[in-house]
């Protein structure tokens, strides 16, 4: 049998126009759900680049005993430097530590004045090649055999951003889950609406369908227009969603960056293209799912 794509497309579009109210409801729900998915993916990408960046700034700081012998400190430093994961280390003397504190507290001189002498310990700042090895390196430091000769307390005196990282990750994952479940719910709603739109159309055209069957139209000849209709609704929904998302990317993001210039937020072109393609596929998938369910349930061929 000759396949007639133009005929199918025409029928699908005709159907959609005839049932404008239902179709627009289905399309807008699909658009909304895909838009939400898009927004959350976008947020996820931004957060991800953001945290990776923050993580890469993380360092481990080991505070040393005032009384530690300089050879032992030197040996400790050499040991740390010998680990592959460690990029550089920096020894901070008591005086340097005080300078840093003064710099930080220059707006509150009263605190500095209350200080007598230099209570600050010297420390070693360790910079890693990859922030993800933080925990491992901290573990290695804690296992250093002569640790007690250079460090007072292996718990308190080794500082790193672990708690901070954990919090950040848990916040991101909560936002992500809430967003994605809202989006999933909306996807479900749009599938239901597409099923309903098609049910009405199948009902409206039952006479035509009966005649098509009678004169020997193949199953798929009867089905294609309906299937296409659902897919088209999903596709249009996706296009609308992408339009809004593009607006967000270009306009809203620029405003945000203007307001908070130190936040280095950016979304690369290829990533956005991937997101758009994903949304288009998602829309078509939503439409196809809805229409195949409707066909199975309501169209007896």
């Amino acid at each position: 049998m000759r396949i007639k794509p133009i005929y199918f497309a025409r029928e699908a579009i005709d159907n959609m126009c005839k049932n404008f109210a239902m179709s627009s409801a289905a399309i807008s729900t699909a658009a909304l759900s895909l838009f939400l998915v898009g927004v959350f993916l976008l947020m996820f990408f931004i957060w991800n680049s953001f945290t990776v960046e923050t993580l890469s700034k993380l360092e481990i700081e080991v505070f040393l005993k005032d009384t530690a012998a300089s050879e032992q400190v030197q040996e400790f430093q050499n040991k740390i430097l010998s680990w592959d994961e460690v990029d550089t280390i920096k020894y901070v003397s008591k005086d340097e530590a005080l300078e840093r504190l003064k710099e930080k507290l220059k707006d509150k001189p009263e605190i500095l004045q209350a200080m007598t002498g230099n209570p600050l310990p010297p420390s070693i700042r360790i910079f890693l090649r990859d922030a993800h090895s933080t925990e491992m390196i901290v573990g290695k430091i804690r296992n250093y055999p002569n640790l007690e000769s250079v460090v007072e307390n292996s718990k308190q005196d080794i500082k790193y951003g672990a708690e901070y990282i954990d919090k950040l990750f848990s916040i991101i994952s909560i936002i992500g889950w809430v967003g994605l479940s809202a989006a999933a719910l909306l996807c479900f709603a749009s599938i239901v609406l597409i099923i309903n739109t098609l049910r009405l159309n199948i009902f409206a055209r039952r006479k035509e369908v009966a005649i098509m069957r009678l004169v020997g139209a193949s199953k798929w000849f009867v089905r294609w227009p309906f299937l296409l209709e659902g897919m088209l609704q999903g596709l249009i929904g996706a296009t609308i969603a992408i339009g809004f998302l593009y607006f967000i990317k270009v306009w809203v993001l620029r405003k945000v960056i203007e307001m908070i210039p130190f936040l280095n937020i950016s979304i690369s072109g290829p990533l956005f293209t991937k997101l758009m393609l994903g949304m288009i596929l998602g829309g078509i998938l939503i439409g196809a799912t809805g229409s195949s369910i409707a066909l199975r349930r309501f169209l007896k061929v």
Binding site: R2, K4, K207, E208, I211, M212, L214, G216, S218, F221
Partner: peptide, 22 residues
């Protein structure tokens, strides 16, 4: 079993169309 919104010609043509006649 004719389609009320199609003319006599269209009703016949429809039967040919749906079986994929050019």
């Amino acid at each position: 079993k004719l389609l009320p919104n199609k003319t006599a010609y269209e009703n016949v043509a429809f039967a040919l169309e749906v079986i994929g006649k050019p």
